[in-house]
Design a protein around this nucleic acid. Sequence first.
DNA 1: TGCCTATTTGGCTATATTGCCAAATAACGA
DNA 2: TCGTTATTTGGCAATATAGCCAAATAGGCA
Lengths: 110, 110
Amino acid sequence: MNVNRKNHLEARARVLKALAHPTRLFIVEELEKGEQCVCDLTAMIGADVSTVSKHLSVLKQGGIVLDDKRGNQVFYRLRVPCILNFFGCVESVLETQAQDHVDCLTREGA
Amino acid sequence: MNVNRKNHLEARARVLKALAHPTRLFIVEELEKGEQCVCDLTAMIGADVSTVSKHLSVLKQGGIVLDDKRGNQVFYRLRVPCILNFFGCVESVLETQAQDHVDCLTREGA
DNA sequence: TGCCTATTTGGCTATATTGCCAAATAACGA
DNA sequence: TCGTTATTTGGCAATATAGCCAAATAGGCA
């Protein structure tokens, strides 16, 4: 595996890693509806503010969101518009799993 | 956040987590070309066979790949055809980052 | 059966992630 | 300036992940 390819794979992995947490996926889904401040996200998530802030920091480092400080609040928004399509594929994975589960139960019952 | 939504987010996160590693992304890219046995993947990756086997196990648990034992070899293949599109979005994230980096350098130079 | 190859599993250490609390920082209004 | 609110950062403990080696398992063949 050459160095370029390795770097590229590592870059991709960083992006995916930034998304790979339930709370961060929740944040992304909420930001699809429009920008949100940390305080509102925190209220919806129900974790410590510092925890939410750190998740936002991970998303920012991963290039998923942008922040904008206005007054004493910080508003976050999605940086890349395609995140929605992105999840289409994840859903396919989940649906395939679900179907396999159904198939499995059907076979057992037969 | 209700229980259903939470479960769904956790399921999505599991899929993304399974993909979020350079070696596993490499494997997925290679499997896009067609099925591969563990031994060939191991040779390409250059890590211990046991390490590669564990990565494959993670991908299998995540619903990304399927395995098929034939003789004393195990062949892995992609389970969901959309993985390619999937990466289109990750690429957009990376390109946006790259563009920002260029912008940043340009501003500095100005 | 016994040996060889392919793969998985167990066990270990090193490292990374998560989530909380407490403290630091920033902006706002009295 | 002081107090209040919003957010980030530091630090800690619990847990998860990654990679290696060694051992177990499975299949093929003499």
